[in-house]
């Protein structure tokens, strides 16, 4: 029995969103009577933290505290439209829509505050702590709560805003094949280290080390959560997970968690990552999408590491023990 080690890397250029024949996300923002802000969306938080970052983005654009923003993504039947949570698109699309809606609501908020303070709108600024004051005059101020109350009950204004981000359709040029498929691109390089047991064909991933360029991070802890989770998913796709192990035949297709194998806690290697921030031109505060890329770059890196360890050229996933042993047999027979 021999255990061989190898190192492989992969670099990817990853699109944020697709045009999909026109890909919009809408947002509605309004102030409650007490000066909280509700951001109404149909965009879905799968646990990646979308509601958190949309509240951050809304708070930043409105100039109000984060904890006064409520993100309501409750009902895709009645909420403003969102195409969905996929294609690493939602931070970009929904974030931009929220900024647009928040800016319109902020404009009304400042108009109401200006009327109450009897000053010009252009003289006002928010402190991000729940107050609006005259620039350079700390004590000539009104709270956001009082402003919202005045809008509702004295002035008959609605502090609200509408936002949409649309990636327009981009039909393919029939001559050149060109189109404009995405909104911005993130980048990655992953290095994987593996150990392959040449008797059993088992592959152990020893380390996943990556650099990810994700534009401006909205929430670094949530970006890290995507990266570590993505590394695990990448290991699963590279080594174990498939619904058709003998594709295109569907023989031996797994039907449950006993036969659909995934890596467990014991299979997780060290995951290291550097995050680089190069702001995108059109993302919310310069953000790009990070969700899918972090699953994709580990996969070819791991397969390359296996090839490096064994001196073979496997080009399929998942690289199950059977695939490893067949590649070794082929190499021994002189075909590798």
């Amino acid at each position: 029995m021999t255990k061989l080690r190898g190192t492989g890397f992969a670099a990817v250029n990853y699109p944020t969103g697709m045009h999909l024949g026109g890909d919009p996300t809408q947002s509605l923002v309004h102030a409650t009577t007490s000066g909280n802000f509700v951001v109404t969306m149909s965009s879905v938080d799968l646990g990646q933290g979308l509601k958190t970052i949309l509240a951050q983005i809304a708070a930043e654009a409105l100039g109000v505290p984060y904890d006064t923003v409520i993100v309501d993504t409750g009902d895709t039947d009645t909420g403003p439209h969102c195409t969905g949570t996929f294609a690493s698109r939602t931070t970009h699309r929904a974030g931009n829509a929220v900024i647009m809606a928040a800016e319109e609501a902020r404009k009304v908020m400042l108009e109401v505050a200006a009327e109450k303070l009897e000053v010009g709108v252009e003289d006002l600024e928010t402190d991000g702590l729940g107050n609006i004051h005259v620039k350079g005059v700390e004590d000539k101020a009104i709270s956001v709560a009082e402003t919202a109350g005045a809008a509702h009950f004295e002035l008959g204004r609605t502090i609200s805003g509408r936002g949409i981000y649309l990636k327009p359709p981009s039909p393919m040029d029939p001559e050149t094949g060109e189109s404009d498929p995405d909104s911005t691109q993130a980048h990655a390089c992953t290095v994987a280290e593996v150990e392959v047991d040449t008797e059993t064909g088992d592959v152990q991933v020893l380390a996943i080390k990556s650099a990810y360029e994700v534009g401006q991070q909205v929430n670094p802890e949530l970006v890290k959560g995507q990266i570590v989770g993505g590394a695990w998913m990448g290991i699963g796709h590279a080594l174990q997970e498939t619904t058709a192990p003998y594709y295109p035949a569907i023989d031996h297709a797994p039907r449950d968690f006993q036969t659909y194998q995934m890596p467990g806690a014991v299979d997780m290697p060290e995951v290291e990552c550097e995050v680089l921030e190069i702001a995108s031109r059109n993302g919310p505060f310069g953000a790009k999408g990070v969700g899918e890329m972090v699953t994709n770059s580990p996969i070819p890196a791991i397969v390359n590491a296996i090839n490096n360890a064994l001196g073979v050229r496997i080009t399929q996933i998942p690289v199950t023990p059977e695939v490893v042993l067949r590649a070794l047999d082929e190499k021994a027979a002189g075909g590798g």
Binding site: L46, G47, Q48, G225, V228, G229, G230, A231, W232, M233, F257, M262, G264, A265, V266, M268, V271
Partner: peptide, 22 residues
């Protein structure tokens, strides 16, 4: 750390990659 990972061997997490839980 190994004993923690072993104790979680029967629990699937599809999001976090386990490391934050460990």
């Amino acid at each position: 750390r190994d004993e923690i990972a072993e104790a979680l061997a029967g629990n699937i997490c599809r999001c976090t990659g386990y490391l934050p839980i460990i």
